[in-house]
Computed example of a mutant assay.
Amino acid sequence: MSYLLTQLVNGVSLGLVLGLIAVGFVVVFKSTGVLNFAHGSVLLLGAYLVARLHPELGFWGALAAGVAGAALVAALINTLLVRRVAEHDPGVLAILTIGVDILLLTELTRQIGNDVLDIGAPWGASVVGAAGVSLPASRAIAAGTAVVLFAALGALAARTDWGLAMRAAAADPDTASLMGIRLSRTSAVGWGLAGALAAVAGVFLTSYPTPGVEPGVSVVAFAAIPAWVLGGFDSVPGAVAGGLVIGVAQALAIGYESELHFLGGGFGEVVPYAVMVLVLLLRPHGLFGQKEAIRV
């Protein structure tokens, strides 16, 4: 029983990290309507900056610089590229972000080379435990951080002018613009916020289970896409719920891989996508997505 509880707790903590990444997808989609496939490389950039800067700035200074750098690059992607083709089909914008992802990932891969860069996290490889359940300190801190950030994001969306502007822009951008809302500023803040969340998630992904920054981290980050899709594309609570579903499913699949050997080795890596397909067969609009009403 303690093993099962450990896997469940581990899955919840992983799910909260995936939720951070998925919420970034949601914020970009709500503020600009773009499927941002450059999100994984922005996450890698944030972790890379922390790894490069922590010897000079210390971990916390490097973390601040990494979060700010990822937010700035994400905002620039929107301002310099996405907004210039904003009138095009959403498919064109999605392909544009794929191109940006390839370029940014290629450059980061060149910079990292064959190295695995240490981020200098102060919690190291320590483990915490209670009631027979053990959990890496990185995962425990990640879970607590994610909960705090989700609460802050909820307050930001509900109680600030930017939150109101983003909701208005997502509902009807033309009317929002006529009412004096600067769509360019709203979208830039949305992209920057998504980049900052990605950088925080990147730090935790590179702390455990394989410490260190290497190019494959951006691929791991894409496990959050099923969480985003499960949540319904434009729902922050849905993204969090989707992250929890994917995290628990993946943790259980990996933890009980020996009992699931008939499914083949490495099944845990494809579980997020298998769960996504299964849920979408039952709820095509995701767990929290709303079916769009079309009036004729």
Results as ranks from 00 to 15, higher is better:
Val50Leu: 07
Gly113Lys: 01
Gly99His: 08
Arg52Val: 15
Gly66Trp: 04
Leu80Met: 12
Phe37Ala: 08
Ala94Val: 07
Thr106Lys: 07
Ala74Glu: 12
Leu96Asn: 03
Phe29Pro: 03
Ser31Thr: 10
Gly91Arg: 09
Glu107Asn: 09
Ala62Thr: 06
Phe37His: 06
Gly66Thr: 05
Arg110Ala: 15
Val67Asn: 14
His39Arg: 02
Gly61Val: 11
Leu57Cys: 08
Ile77Val: 10
Phe29Gln: 09
Ala71Arg: 12
Ala38Gly: 10
Ala62Ser: 13
Leu63Gly: 13
Val67Ser: 12
Lys30Ser: 11
Arg110Ser: 13
Ile119Thr: 09
Leu53Gly: 05
Leu35Trp: 07
Ile98Tyr: 07
Leu96Thr: 04
Asn36Ile: 03
Val100Tyr: 05
Val92Leu: 14
Gly46Asn: 08
Asn114Ser: 15
Leu81Gln: 01
Val34Pro: 02
His88Thr: 13
Asp101Ser: 14
Leu117Thr: 03
Leu76Asp: 06
Gly40Phe: 06
Ser31Cys: 11
Thr109Ile: 03
Trp60Gln: 13
His39Gly: 04
Asp115Tyr: 04
Val67Leu: 15
Phe37Cys: 00
Leu35Arg: 00
Gln111Glu: 14
Val92Tyr: 14
Arg83Ser: 12
Leu53Tyr: 06
Val73Trp: 14
Tyr48Asn: 03
Thr79Tyr: 12
Asn78Ala: 11
Ser31Leu: 10
Ile102Phe: 13
Leu63Tyr: 11
Val100Ala: 09
Ser41Ala: 15
Leu53Phe: 15
Asp101Pro: 00
Val92Glu: 14
Gly99Trp: 11
Ala70Pro: 07
Ala51Gln: 04
Asp115Cys: 03
Thr106Tyr: 08
Ala64His: 08
Ile98His: 06
Leu105Met: 11
Val82Glu: 06
Gly40Glu: 01
Ile95Lys: 01
Gly113Gln: 04
